[in-house]
Simulated assay, not measured.
Amino acid sequence: MKIGLYFGTYNPIHVGHLIIANYMADFTELDQVWLVVTPQNPLKKKNTLLEDYHRLAMVEIAVEDNTKLTASNIEFKLPQPSYTSNTLAYLKEKHPKHEFSLIMGEDNLRTLHKWKNFDQILNNHMIYVYPRALTEQERTEVIEQTETENTLAQHKNVIVCDAPVMKVSASFIRKAIKDKKDVRYLLTEPVFKYVTDMNFYKK
């Protein structure tokens, strides 16, 4: 089975994440997409980041009715900080019959050469890349990194996908909730209910 790994803090998971995940599961050769919830780095306490189990719970309820999407807490069990190469090695050992690929935004592709064991990742796993709406700061950085990205994008294991992308972020949603704005259409109904019932992001 071909599994795409879509890593994120999912704080909270929103419709933009789900559109990407569903596109990859339906319009590529992947059989399933696992949304891998990134655990909080114990050395970096961030007030805005919810506990791991809350973020995992939101992903679980967001995808529970889709057989092609699965919430994964695999990195909760691994040493911190989490390195993608370590996670891939662990999954390959645990699920030898599965073929694991990565799903990432074009912004991550531009910095892939800085990742631990990036050559090993690039040569042994397919990477599905989706476009991202960029901030002004990112646009400036892009000009400096275009050559690196172009080189990586030409790699035989990199597949650039024309996935639909929404210019919405978890940080925008958190700020909107804090400012008492209505975000119901940016989250699935179960996730919106969970966030509302738990009074998350209001402070």
Score class of each variant (00 low, 15 high):
127 I>R: 05
137 Q>G: 08
139 R>M: 07
141 E>Q: 13
91 L>M: 15
142 V>C: 07
110 R>L: 14
97 K>W: 04
138 E>F: 02
111 T>V: 12
89 A>E: 14
148 T>K: 05
145 Q>R: 10
157 N>F: 03
126 M>Y: 01
130 Y>F: 13
140 T>W: 00
118 F>Y: 14
127 I>C: 09
97 K>E: 13
149 E>A: 06
104 M>G: 08
87 T>E: 09
116 K>I: 11
93 E>A: 11
92 K>N: 14
108 N>H: 14
133 A>F: 04
125 H>T: 06
118 F>R: 07
151 T>F: 08
127 I>K: 04
142 V>R: 13
138 E>T: 00
115 W>G: 05
105 G>N: 11
104 M>W: 06
111 T>D: 12
146 T>I: 08
152 L>A: 05
94 K>L: 14
136 E>K: 03
138 E>K: 00
108 N>A: 15
137 Q>E: 09
143 I>W: 04
121 I>C: 01
116 K>W: 12
93 E>H: 07
107 D>M: 06
132 R>L: 01
117 N>D: 14
142 V>G: 02
95 H>M: 10
129 V>W: 00
124 N>G: 07
154 Q>R: 12
136 E>V: 04
154 Q>G: 04
132 R>D: 02
90 Y>A: 15
149 E>G: 03
142 V>W: 11
138 E>R: 01
136 E>H: 00
108 N>I: 09
127 I>A: 06
157 N>H: 12
87 T>W: 08
126 M>P: 01
124 N>S: 06
116 K>R: 15
145 Q>N: 10
97 K>H: 13
154 Q>V: 03
115 W>C: 08
133 A>I: 08
135 T>R: 02
98 H>V: 10
152 L>I: 08
133 A>T: 07
118 F>C: 07
102 L>N: 11
113 H>S: 09
139 R>I: 06
156 K>R: 10
143 I>C: 11
109 L>V: 02
123 N>L: 04
114 K>R: 15
